[in-house]
Design a protein around this nucleic acid. Structure first.
Lengths: 336, 336
DNA sequence: CTGTTAGCGCTTTCAT
DNA sequence: ATGAAAGCGCTAACAG
């Protein structure tokens, strides 16, 4: 039933070795042999057994892509970018969902390691990744996106967080806003960079920073639908009363959900009463009323660069770790 | 560097065989041996090589999940449901994106077959799947969701398309609508079922059906952002002028994007001038103004059922093919 | 340009 | 309750 290389070799009247080399183009083979091998392959409908190949050659040609939230279009587009460079080189992407859960993330990583993936691309759930020290072998090429891991140094590909926010906040200031709030759902290095961009824009425009305009908290991760009236939604009333902002810079996409929903439900006029910009573009920003301005990341490009760097590291594991930044783009829509 | 079973066996003073049986609990082993093997495993930090295991045992414990569009939250949630039943049984889900492209789909399937996946779950790009006959071995457990394949009969798990639409259209009629349009972006069996639900609701309420109220066409697949002003958007003016509907039943999520965007841009009052229901729920229905009513599928449940059926078929391949239906639920929001 | 041969690391008869 | 040994299907020295 199963047709193997031996069958092909036999039918073609050559050795297994030659068959292997024909398939992999791994050494010179006579025209004639190539012809007969290919013919045999077709006639027998032979397919290589990748498992055997992987066992023998010691690599799986699989790359694990471990993501906090597969529902997020951002990661899917990073994946598309990764695929664009990895697939032509014979690597397959294995999408794995951690569902914002650090324990599942740990399990997923261990799983991938057990399955002999050749490389890992991780969007970590948490800031601190030191636990990975124990479960990811030093020899396994690993790259981080979205968050710079703490306690576990590897290649990273990230957006220009602080410049992206700077550009948006600078725009708001030029439009005359002086009380601009900064809201983020989770506190981590990435959010810090974004907040720094905000601070810098204020400083460069000689505006002082009022701490009550910041609301950066630990918001428990949740599916998008649950964020509509989640913690941030519930925190808004008090926040708005306390600091009366005329514009809001929202530091991440999930935060935007609760904030926007609160403002709509309470009939705030956007942008007249409160202007809005959110970091990270989402499809729904374009269907909302008003449409929402965004600091757009370029997830496909992030994927492409990450793929290239991983490919390099797959070749030589000793190179110095890189921290590559992908530019963001400010998209003005109706909300500011 | 790599620690293998031999190392463990040696350290524990038993044979490879015993180590294997301890790990897999595949035959009785003395308490003492178990203890020593486990200890050796810990001390050496041994990890089984899944590739070798797969090669020997002939199965990969991988299930390919081949999807038209990974960006769609629907498939991701089906995946979560699949995982919920497959993971505890030791199977891993391999998400693969066909990106609405039949050629990529073909390639993905061949790829999965080559990689010796134990089973396939497919959301096909097209209605006609007869080409799969040639690339999917009869012995490979395969199940379809979302669309019933034509020309390739296998297990399927689908929503109750026609009942779901019936319920929504019946509601619209009870609210007094008599000119209800039906819009769908692609013409296939699934859309036919939905359209039949619409026709049946009209018939049961003694309303006649005007063909000009139907707009079911071949709309080229595209990323969500491109659908905002895509073909359906452009077709709306003529359609509305021709049939003057007071309510719209939109047969699929992608169609809803162009239609909603058109109505908003042209300042139609929803639901006063035109009421709206869309098949398949999306996150943005809840952030839109007005919020959009939906015939909600239960993707997680679809995944769970699909997983269970696949598991059965993995055990015995000869059972009769099943066609399981998962109930939909009508969620009324502001748009009707 | 081609073939022989020795495994990759594991599971699984078959024997004891 | 345990072990020896065969081999899953392929690749890559090595030898010619």
């Amino acid at each position: 039933m199963k047709v193997t290389m031996d069958d092909v070799a036999h039918k073609a009247g050559v050795s297994k070795t030659t068959v292997s080399h024909v398939i992999n183009k791994s050494r010179a083979v006579s025209q004639e042999a190539v012809l007969r091998v290919n013919q045999a392959i077709n006639e027998l409908d032979y397919k290589v057994n990748t498992i055997a190949r992987n066992l023998r050659s010691g690599n799986s040609h699989m790359i694990g892509f471990i993501v906090t939230n597969l529902t997020n279009y951002f990661y899917i587009n990073v994946g598309a970018g990764l695929n664009a460079v990895l697939k032509p080189k014979g690597y397959r992407l294995f999408y794995v969902n951690s569902n914002e859960d650090a324990e599942i993330e740990r399990q997923n990583i261990q799983d991938m390691v057990m399955h002999s993936t050749d490389g890992l691309i991780i969007a970590p759930t948490a800031n601190n990744c030191s636990y990975m020290q124990d479960i990811i072998p030093d020899s396994l090429p690993t790259l981080f996106i979205d968050r710079k891991p703490v306690g576990f140094i590897r290649d990273t590909v990230l957006p220009t967080n602080s410049q992206g926010v700077y550009e948006a906040v600078d725009y708001l200031i030029k439009r005359g806003h002086t009380r601009i709030g900064f809201i983020g759902s989770r506190k981590n290095d990435t959010m810090n960079e974004r907040h720094n961009g905000y601070l810098q824009a204020l400083a460069d425009n000689s505006l002082s920073h009022f701490p009550e305009l910041d609301m950066i908290g630990e918001v428990p991760p949740a599916p998008m639908h649950d964020l509509l009236e989640g913690p941030l939604y519930r925190a808004m009333e008090q926040y708005l009363a306390a600091c009366r902002p005329t514009a809001l810079m929202i530091g991440n996409g999930l935060a935007a959900i609760g904030v926007f929903n609160y403002l709509k439900k309470h009939a705030y006029k956007i942008p007249e009463e409160i202007a809005l910009v959110a970091f990270d573009d989402s499809f729904w920003y374009s269907t909302a009323t008003p449409t929402i301005s965004a600091v757009m990341q370029d997830p496909f490009e992030i994927g492409v660069q990450a793929g290239k760097i991983l490919l390099k590291r797959l070749k030589k594991k000793t190179a110095r770790y890189q921290d590559v930044r992908i530019p963001t783009k400010f998209i003005r829509r109706e909300s500011c």
